[in-house]
């Protein structure tokens, strides 16, 4: 079965190919790209398209690799032993399975999303090398090896906050989601708002690109911001003519808050305006 994108998710040829390659070779797929270009969404859409269940593991700065495998709750066991609970005799009662274990255990192949792997400690990916390579790990407490019944499809996203180790990268396929071109972006908007007026869409996209191309923005608006913004335009009943009259060198577009999210970016926008006016005078 091949992934071809879904009705709700527009992909480009290179992305589908990367997904398919990693599915058939059973290697993890590492996805990077600007924030808001649908990295996390991809895993869900792959799961949907291939009709698989999804297991998500969201990484935080305090997450360790061991947590993905399992955790042994020794304190609970000690407590139970003092309370005379029968459960105490079976150590497996105190093994809390992690997301990897969950994915390995599943009888059907699942999609495993490891979201924002760069959030964790710099050594985190190295700790998972063997587990991702062999798709198995050893549980000391139970003295048995947990092996994946069906090797899961692993999709890993990263926001580039940390460099990933080479040994880890070697084991993955890599795809960088670049910002979509105008045509693809149109398709994407269309998926979300099938009834959107063509004229409004064109105008909105022009304004959007105009803002995106301002130099020095701290956070350039990306696809998800555009979707939110268009939603506001629709709800606020802004018409294409209103956008047509708009000149970002003179005033903020309506609902700028959805596009620009940092104070400095507003400052840049207004400074740009000042410079523009001076030029006119």
């Amino acid at each position: 079965m091949k992934f071809e994108g879904t009705n709700d998710y527009i992909t480009t040829g290179d992305l589908t190919l990367a997904v398919n390659a990693s599915v058939s070779l059973e290697r993890p797929l590492l996805i990077k790209g600007e924030p808001g270009t649908g990295k996390t969404m991809l895993a869900f859409e792959v799961a949907k398209a291939l009709k698989k269940d999804i297991v998500t593991w969201h990484i935080k700065s305090s997450t360790t690799a061991q947590q993905g495998l399992y955790e042994y709750d020794a304190v609970a066991r000690l407590r139970d032993s003092q309370l005379g609970d029968d459960r105490v005799n079976d150590i497996s009662n105190y093994i809390n399975k992690g997301k990897l274990w969950e994915a390995f255990e599943s009888k059907k192949q699942v999609v495993l999303l490891i979201d924002e792997i760069d959030k964790a400690d710099i050594e985190f990916p190295n700790d998972l090398l063997l587990e991702l390579d062999k798709m198995e790990f050893y549980c000391y407490e139970l003295q048995k090896t947990i092996t994946a019944k069906k090797r899961p499809i692993i999709i890993i996203t990263s926001n580039n906050e940390k460099e990933l180790p080479d040994a880890f990268l070697r084991r993955c396929f890599f795809h960088y989601i670049s910002f979509p071109d105008r045509e693809t972006l149109k398709d994407i908007v269309h998926v979300h708002y099938p009834d959107l007026e063509e004229k409004l869409m064109n105008k909105a996209l022009s304004v959007f690109y105009e803002i995106r191309e301002i130099d020095g923005l701290k956070k350039r608006p990306s696809t998800s911001e555009l979707i939110d913004w268009i939603k506001l335009l629709v709800v606020g009943k802004i018409t294409a003519t209103e956008l047509d009259d708009l000149d970002i060198t003179e005033e903020d577009p309506p609902y700028t808050g959805a596009l620009l999210k940092s104070e400095q970016d507003y400052e840049i926008l207004s400074r740009l305006r000042g410079r523009f006016k001076r030029k006119l005078n």
């Binding site: 990367a18 070779l25 797929l29 993955c172």
Partner: peptide, 24 residues
């Protein structure tokens, strides 16, 4: 990947595939 026929025989696909597997 080439062995497993992940791609059809077009350079386009070969470009995408080699990029995904070689460049990290």
């Amino acid at each position: 990947a080439l062995d497993k026929d992940v791609i059809d025989c077009s350079v386009d696909d070969f470009y995408f595939l080699s990029r995904a597997s070689l460049i990290k």
